[in-house]
Design a protein around this nucleic acid. Structure first.
Lengths: 348, 348
DNA sequence: TCTGATTTCGCAATCGTTTGCAGAAACCTG
DNA sequence: CAGGTTTCTGCAAACGATTGCGAAATCAGA
């Protein structure tokens, strides 16, 4: 392992002091260095193959040029695009991101926040899942620049970027309404997750706004955002709810579970029951029936969050523009169709 | 932003020297500290909420306790499980991982290796894609601990963990052969990617081993591992190759493209042409027809690579066990079926 | 030529930890 | 009790960079 070339080496080679070298190599400070000297030094630097040691610089400046990216689980197809969106703005600026998976466990999350602080990250982007986790709010109050994705943190002045969950659900409901559906059920997500709760609220609002029946039995809550829970919740609806002709699912995986149940029970989709999802995961257009869903702008959300964080790190007050709401789009595919005629209602 | 508590603070509070504090807090060195003193110090440390500054420690010890994880693209469904596998062993050991996406561009990759070195990573896990990229080999030769996933680097002594590509293709071909297929085509991946090349070679071997026709026209090469190229290559086969009854695709996305083409041309799958993929991506069981494919152990590969890297960082010679080959499994689903009778060959 | 302003550069401290070395104290051993 | 260990702790120098401050050099103007 060869000796890494440092400022000192360049200083020795050019016969100047290490501080002069440091200044000559810093574009911001190089005004205080004569042109000749600077050229001499930069030449020597590139000749020797100098690469600054960011740890050392970070120690001195208290700026590590790294940010922490906290997500529930990179394995969840929702997050990779977000991560890339973040990286696409951070990397060109010289920032590196250290990625951690919280699994939505508060204690794990708390530990990871500490880990990130130990490493001196300049800020944290937190793709939140839980509705309440005080850890991140505390970090923000302690002066750590923080931006959250998917969730607003009450009280603290933390910028956040979210999708327009309300509009998404409203689009789905309106779409079904337009197809003639009147009795619409909701497979809700976990209510301790922000998206689950927001979408359930949005569903109730949308139903009310259209003067549709708001029977609480038409809402079944999944404990997790996965296929099994989607199936369970859908079965619960089929078994206990009054007849309905459409299911608005709080996310695509729940919808996949619901579709499985319909198929298993021989209920044709969309002939008898239409289904919608949320998120527009990959490959949803390949399944049978292709899932009608709401597409969201993950990469853009990541990029915006990253830019907000950079601004915060740069000293901008968070107060200015706390909220960024990204538009969503309805993607109509095969899983939704016209409401079956009332003469042949689905057997219960 | 409050002052962060340092060793110096603890020293002041307990009235001892900072070096004593450092030793008392280091489990390895604490033998040289009396029990009473150590207790006093650890108590003060936790009372003050001390958290070591890893940057400072890293600067001194030349050990940053971070590793670089280089992957082509986290958006590719193949990699998230690998990343989690890596994290699952690294995080408990106190390592953080900084993640970078290379997009399989050599110059970008070279730059990112430098970025990682600047940050003083203790090692690099490189989920390779390109068959040749000298950058990572140079880094390894310069003394950086490196482990690669999916690729062997010739010459350099770099441990690598790969899937048993050969067995995977052999399984697919044998499965088709068992179903009666004799004329089997191959949608090959890009030959500048290691997996593409290895699988194409494996295909030829498997064909030869079964004494099946090894017509070069039965192999069509995709330029990228995506659906569009899979479709293009499949069309090329249908248009120019002699009749065949099965297609072994070098990866699932190519297979998806191939399935689209078959459907578009009205060629029923698997009635007239069977199709297999590779990787067992999520949701492949939900599409129509469900794709028969080869499942690989991504998370395990990541975990093993991480363990190997830790060993390297710990000073172990890479020579010992360079190669780890992970077993693969055939997953039979709906896209493969018995060979159509010869009396009704597919029209060309 | 001298003064004062300006540029250009070196000195040294500093960030928070780690660690070789040495000194002091305590403990044995003969 | 002298001499030799062993145990404990402090001192200070690193690690590689940044930066306030001051000194030297240059320059302009009188």
């Amino acid at each position: 392992m060869k000796h890494r070339v440092t400022l000192k080496d360049i200083a020795r080679h050019t016969g100047v002091h290490v501080s002069t070298v440091s200044r000559a190599l810093d574009p911001a400070k190089s005004t205080t260095i004569s042109d000749g000297m600077r050229k001499q030094i930069t030449d020597a630097a590139s000749a020797l193959g100098y690469r600054p040691n960011r740890l050392a610089a970070g120690l001195r400046t208290n700026r590590s040029m790294t940010v922490g990216v906290m997500i529930p689980d990179i394995t969840n197809a929702l997050f990779p695009p977000i991560v890339r969106g973040i990286e696409s703005v951070l990397e060109p600026l010289g920032y590196a991101s250290i990625l951690v998976n919280t699994d939505s466990e508060p204690e794990r999350e708390a530990r990871l926040v500490e880990v990130l602080r130990d490493r001196g990250v300049d800020g944290i982007i937190h793709a939140a899942a839980l509705r309440q986790d005080p850890t991140i709010a505390r970090a923000a109050e302690a002066g750590m620049p923080v931006v959250t994705l998917n969730r607003r943190i009450e009280g603290a002045e933390i910028p956040f970027v979210i999708n327009d969950e309300d509009a998404g659900i409203r689009l789905a409901v309106a779409h079904l309404h337009g197809l003639g559906h009147r009795r619409i059920a909701h497979v809700a997500g976990p209510q301790n997750l922000s998206t689950g709760q927001l979408r359930a609220e949005a569903f109730r609002r949308a139903i009310r706004a259209l003067d549709l029946p708001a029977d609480p039995r038409l809402i079944s809550e999944a404990q997790r955002f996965d296929e099994d829970e989607g199936a369970r919740a859908a079965e619960h609806l089929l078994d206990t709810a009054p007849p309905f002709t459409a299911m608005v699912c709080a996310n695509d995986r729940l919808a996949l579970g619901a579709l499985s149940v319909l198929r298993a029970r021989g209920v044709p989709c969309p002939a008898e029951v239409s289904v919608t999802g949320f998120n527009n995961m990959p490959f949803l257009d390949r399944i049978e029936p292709a899932l009608t869903t709401i597409s969201i702008r993950q990469a853009e959300a990541g990029a915006i969050a990253a830019r907000r964080l950079i601004a915060l790190i740069g000293g901008e007050a968070p107060g200015g523009m706390l909220e960024t709401v990204l538009p969503v789009e309805l993607v109509v595919r095969g899983s939704t169709g016209p409401c079956p005629t009332l003469e042949s209602p689905r057997d219960l």
